[in-house]
Write a protein that binds this DNA or RNA. Sequence first.
DNA 1: ACCCACTTGTTCAAATTCGAACCAACGGCT
DNA 2: AGCCGTTGGTTCGAATTTGAACAAGTGGGT
Lengths: 151, 151
Amino acid sequence: MRWLSERELRTWQGFLTAATVLTRLVEQQLKEEAGLSHPQYEVLVRLSAAPDGELRMTELAEVAVTSKSGLTYQVGQLEKAGLVRRKSCPSDVRGVVAALTDEGWRKLREVAPGHAELVRRHFVDGLSERQFAALSDGVDALAARLAPQEP
Amino acid sequence: MRWLSERELRTWQGFLTAATVLTRLVEQQLKEEAGLSHPQYEVLVRLSAAPDGELRMTELAEVAVTSKSGLTYQVGQLEKAGLVRRKSCPSDVRGVVAALTDEGWRKLREVAPGHAELVRRHFVDGLSERQFAALSDGVDALAARLAPQEP
DNA sequence: ACCCACTTGTTCAAATTCGAACCAACGGCT
DNA sequence: AGCCGTTGGTTCGAATTTGAACAAGTGGGT
């Protein structure tokens, strides 16, 4: 059993800490600027990236990395806010697809610039060209490793 | 106002996703292997890294990146479990210091190896030497940027 | 056509999170 | 000594998260 080196431990902790702090910053900004939580924003973004701005609940839960029940809740909130609409799925009676409403698209266009600005300021600009490229590379490697977890 | 490039966005999302997934894995393992939540484990680790295995509540909240009230709750839980003990602070009547108990040390020694193993498998080993070094570098840069936030 | 194991999405209770309000207590200043 | 703006920690309520249990539906093999 190999132990973690000093450096490995520091990197691991730093990685999680950075993610936590960044998430917190995003959370605050979204809340005060648009009344959205980060998970909610995430849902909107993922929907906007999908064809026709709609996705089945399960798929949405996957890309947004939440539990099914968590998603049910958030979509409920978003629906109350008029940003998302539930439709039944044509190919599967049980299925539910969440779809961005016009309001949803509008809101997203309104919020995105401020969000991008914050990401740039606290994440992208904090790194040199080289550092960013390297981190990008590392994240890709992690993603590849983490995605195929269960088969 | 500069937009985020395709690659910047992917990196950002990948970064958060990786952190979320990793946290989830850690959470699961700790829960089933030791009945601890990740925040709780974090508290134990931070205490163990402090002189005498004790820290004032506020300092602990800082290093563990939680809200004060969140920490109050978790320390409460840990105290119930007998892993941590509250002592009053000699230099400040209001102060409270959380201290690892012998039980706490024991538990930590018991859990740490498995945790290290998991971190190694899903984080460290997922990256080449070079990738790891680069990511480590990037994380350091982020930490430096994020820490001095409020002065 | 019928099973039966798996999938879908929701509901439920329990645990956790956060921020705001709060009460002391501190400590520099006069 | 007395004031007063700040700090330390807890408490409170509201919002959110999770996994387990559930009802309904699907679909391949027989």
